[in-house]
Design a protein around this nucleic acid. Sequence first.
DNA 1: GCAAAAGTGTTTCTACTACACCCATGG
DNA 2: CCATGGGTGTAGTAGAAACACTTTTGC
Lengths: 233, 233
Amino acid sequence: MSNDTIYNPHVSVDCVIFGFDGEKLKLLLIERTISEQNELYNDKKLPGSIILADEDLDDAANRVLNELTGLKNIYLSQFHSFGNPRRTENPRDVLWLEKTTQLKIGRIVTVAYVAMIKIDRKIQFKSDQTSANWYDLNEVQKMNLAFDHADIINKGLEHIRHKSEIEPHLLFELLPRKFTITQLQTLYDTLHQTKSDVRNFRKKVVQWPYIVALDELEEGVPHRAARLYKYKK
Amino acid sequence: MSNDTIYNPHVSVDCVIFGFDGEKLKLLLIERTISEQNELYNDKKLPGSIILADEDLDDAANRVLNELTGLKNIYLSQFHSFGNPRRTENPRDVLWLEKTTQLKIGRIVTVAYVAMIKIDRKIQFKSDQTSANWYDLNEVQKMNLAFDHADIINKGLEHIRHKSEIEPHLLFELLPRKFTITQLQTLYDTLHQTKSDVRNFRKKVVQWPYIVALDELEEGVPHRAARLYKYKK
DNA sequence: GCAAAAGTGTTTCTACTACACCCATGG
DNA sequence: CCATGGGTGTAGTAGAAACACTTTTGC
């Protein structure tokens, strides 16, 4: 954060960024290191930022995403705001905030967004100081996270579960550009918490108008190669 | 607002309060009168408040509802936050805010909630200064509203449309305790923007497990009286 | 030739659609 | 007796669910 930018230290945005590696849901988290009484303390946090004095919320979330990944045109959707006065109460979090922002921090209300990234897109970290990585969602739910970020993640997960039922095309934000039906089914079942029948599932999706079969097969698998498909609006 | 309360003048909550009179969706709005260059200007606004310094968002929304209606246990659900820097730009709105809050107001991010009230519940206005009334949703969409409250209402309407498809029992938050199937159907069709067939609709709802037929009929109607039903969890 | 995953059809069940007439009541 | 809304049944259709075996490929 540069020093000549004016921030609004009362409202922030946080992004729950989902990815999918073909088998499991992943989250993009930032590693945070804090020196505490001569010991280094390590935990993870959601990518986020307090908003600029004159910035819209959606713009702030897009800025966070872009500063972190270098990517544009990412699916992004606001889902909930968190304002428990105690969410910015942990001294560890407050000190960290005041150090990184150089601002006096009181209470912060945060507006949370979900984003979805094709995990095979190459992410260019704009800053070398922050280290961001993909983590299995399962693991994340056992980790120590900053602030109330564990709550935010759970609510964000619920949100994409709902949303992807209503708008199935959201699944293609997470799949690579060319994908197999099995990958699609794994993702679908992960999000819907179901175990679909293979035959019924294929019957269903091949008649979705926006699924196009390609004349290409998977490569480098130690068994019969699957046909590849792509998504077309 | 009393003067010994400490507010956080950066974040507010607004409530889109829905009712249903048996035929149409209604909104509970507050009338606002502003004197401007010796003329009185009149418009409507959503019930809302800036949050207290140490208050959770849900608590603030509940406080607004309770201060306005005297009711507790009202269905309330956060749906979106609005933070366009220009939403608190109209001088009329800024002056009004500074006058009513006695605070210097800059930019405000508002967290919006939908609420549903059984319109036959008697509302006890705690303050005689504010005048609140039910208005037809259709009318409201043609009115002059404060801030970006027109946007908030539209998004709130969308929200309860979605929500009531997933959770049909929400409809009973709007219906009176005893209701007819016709009322239920009118509400259902209004929210879903459909025109259901009478027979098919009755078939569907009587097999919902939480609908209970009563041994009572409507009274005071100039035609055959309809059977009454109630909702049971 | 075997391990591992891809791919394929038929039947059953359930939920939604379309559709038209008689009933009860108040005035 | 008539105007107004209340209340009822049947047949057709489309989409979801259940279910097991053959195919292709790399090793």
